[in-house]
């Protein structure tokens, strides 16, 4: 275990409608065993001691599954590692003397709430448009009544692993949410349970995605590289395919 002395350039913004700016902080004696968020905890303790308001940032489970943590770290969503959330990123990834630039997710659909906290409720609204199977509680048949080929179930699970953090949007040069939407559409398209609403689902979710102000996909694959849950770009292709099919066959 060793210790790092760091320079942090952090985006500070008091409220949604306030002007923001970068502030530079020195932080010494950071253990390489710390997680990135623990490093920010230490920064905040230092700020409180100096009577400066701590940096606001979203986080919760701190084990990479809730999707609440975010942060653009040196220009990369969730930092430099593959398949990693910010809370799983450890300081051993950095070198003594490094300068780290920390910014909030940037997208028109993700307005800044404060400092590094953004509002990602647009993603919830996209799900509300159809990211589910409309089944009322109590009416389900026996779970084993409908066999699902293992490879389909596995692929559906790969897509369903999305944690909804928004890194795909943050990393995309167009702030596109196609990977997020593609993951949910794919999960449902791959399972027999999703079939009855297949057409309406993809049309409605894409319409909502556009209405929320996300950009279009330019197939740069930045989303895939930034995704902490390893959601594959093939899900975007499937989304395109589903959409194509739906456009041609939808009754409306």
């Amino acid at each position: 275990m060793s210790e790092l002395n760091l320079t942090l350039k952090v985006w500070r913004q008091a409220a949604h409608d306030a002007e923001g700016e970068f502030k530079t902080y020195r932080l010494n004696g950071v253990s390489t065993e710390m997680s990135f968020l623990e490093m920010l905890d230490v920064l905040n303790e230092q700020l409180i001691a100096e009577n400066e308001e701590p940096v606001a940032f979203d986080h919760d489970c701190r084990e990479g599954i809730c999707g609440m943590c975010s942060l653009m770290i040196n220009g990369q969503a969730h930092g430099p590692d593959n398949e990693t959330t910010t809370c799983q990123l450890h300081m051993r990834r950095f070198r003594d003397g490094d300068t780290i630039v920390i910014e909030p997710w940037r997208a028109r659909a993700f307005p800044v709430v404060r400092d590094l906290v953004v509002d990602r409720s647009a993603l919830d609204r996209v799900i509300a448009a159809g990211g589910y199977v409309s089944v009322n509680c109590g009416s389900a048949q026996d779970a084993n009544a409908l066999p699902v080929p293992k490879q389909d179930a596995d692929k559906a699970m790969d897509a369903a692993a999305c944690i909804g953090c928004g890194a795909c949007v943050a990393a995309c040069k167009n702030a596109s949410a196609m990977l997020f939407v593609g993951a949910k559409v794919s999960q449902m398209a791959l399972l027999p349970q999703g079939k009855p609403e297949r057409t309406a689902r993809v049309l409605n979710m894409v319409a909502r995605m556009d209405a929320e102000g996300f950009g279009a996909c330019t197939n740069t694959a930045e989303c895939e590289a930034a995704c902490p849950a390893a959601i594959s770009l093939s899900n975007i292709a499937r989304l395109n395919r589903e959409y194509f099919k739906a456009v041609l066959t939808s009754p409306r």
């Binding site: 109590g138 389900a140 779970a143 699902v148 293992k150 399972l191």
Partner: peptide, 19 residues
């Protein structure tokens, strides 16, 4: 389990397609 499967929860399955 019935309810969750109907919702599209991708539980692990055997090769025969059952849970």
């Amino acid at each position: 389990i019935d309810q969750c499967v109907a919702q599209g929860v991708p539980f692990a399955r055997e090769y025969g397609g059952l849970l």
